[in-house]
Simulated scan of single mutants.
Amino acid sequence: MFATLSSSNRKMVPRLPRELQFDDKIPIYWANGDVFKSRFFDAFSTTLPEGEKFFIVSLRQFKDELKSPELQQAFKDFVRQEGAHGMLHNAYNARLHRQGVDVPAIDAFLKKFFALHTRVLSPRMQITLTACAEHMTASMAHSLLDKGSDLMGGADERVRALYFWHAAEEIEHKSVAFEIMRDVAKVGYIPRVAMMLYISVLFNALVFPILEHVLRIDGCTRRERARYWTQGLWWLFKPTRGGFFRDLGGHYLAWFRPGFEPWAAGKLEGYDAWLRSYEAHGDALAAGEATYAELAKAA
């Protein structure tokens, strides 16, 4: 069972689903017509290419200190997977740029933002930031594949396939940065908790202004934006089932246990369903639809 193994004991298979084409036939509000949810994930997508580059660089600083062949291979697979994520989200973000979203300006800001962190933070703190970010994305990935029918119900099949594929690979390599942080960089409990609190605030501080920019580009009036934000913030933060952060909270909060181990947290049924579907079809789009059907049936 995958949950009992570290990623360095597993074979990760980097996949770049070239069959996914993000043309303008995808509805602007692809998440079943939900304006806020569609644009929240779109805003998140714009942060990923530069974020993935930072993650790769932070791990590469420890490349020569990786002693075990298993961890060396896990590092190589991590780099290939994260590179593939950046490429596909760049392709997706090109669609947003055609809609008027100022993706080049967002990229330029994020380059400066991550360059600042590279200058200010030591390599140990950079890998800690990366490990925290990877835990957050793994929490989102587990929630997405565990609650797929709730998060992606009625979504455009191409966007759903993108996020299911990305989530599966985030789960596959979710312990790599953590293992390097803990076992190679020797970062202790207090620094990793402090960095998690920092990046938890940082996530919304980056995504929310981009989301507001996108809503303005859409031509939403001030009153419409106020309504979308009111409804959207309730979806994000409501303390009952269906609240985005509430549903991933269990996995996220596991980080704060002193003896936290990445593979001790997170259900794998959704990931296993996606992997079976991908191996059967060899196509991320078909795998996404088959996985969605299985998750919806189990919901």
Rank of each mutant, 00 (worst) to 15 (best):
E224Y: 01
P49L: 07
S139W: 06
H213Y: 00
V193Y: 07
E70N: 13
A138E: 05
L162K: 02
L206H: 00
L275G: 00
M181V: 03
V103H: 04
V35N: 02
A167H: 08
D156C: 09
H213S: 01
D42F: 06
F55W: 13
I171R: 10
M12Y: 02
F178S: 11
R60V: 04
A43F: 01
L66W: 05
S8W: 03
L66P: 02
W229H: 13
Y29N: 15
S45I: 09
G270K: 07
R216M: 01
L48N: 04
L253H: 03
A3C: 12
A131T: 04
Q99W: 14
S139H: 07
H166V: 09
A177C: 06
Y163K: 10
W165L: 13
L116M: 04
I180E: 08
R60K: 14
E169C: 08
D102Y: 02
N90P: 04
M195E: 08
N204K: 12
S45H: 10
E134V: 09
R119K: 15
M125Q: 15
H281E: 14
L236V: 04
V159Y: 05
T47W: 01
A273N: 07
L233W: 12
K174H: 01
L295V: 12
R80Y: 03
A265T: 14
E157F: 08
R119T: 12
Q231W: 02
L275T: 09
N90C: 12
Q61H: 12
G86Q: 09
I210M: 08
R39D: 01
N93F: 11
S122R: 12
Q99M: 14
W229Q: 06
G250I: 05
F44N: 03
A264F: 02
S200R: 10
L48T: 09
E212R: 00
D42I: 02
S149K: 07
G266E: 09
G154Q: 05
E289V: 11
F113Y: 15
G266W: 06
D77L: 04
L162V: 02
Q126G: 10
H142M: 07
F203S: 03
V57I: 08
R241K: 05
D23A: 06
M12A: 15
S143P: 00
L285I: 14
P258W: 05
K53M: 08
H97S: 15
G282D: 11
K174I: 01
V35Y: 01
P209Y: 00
G100N: 03
G250D: 13
A161E: 11
H135K: 09
P209I: 00
A108P: 09
N32W: 03
F178E: 07
A296L: 05
E269K: 14
E279N: 12
H135T: 08
H173K: 02
R192Q: 12
N204P: 05
F244K: 08
G153W: 08
A185Y: 13
E70K: 13
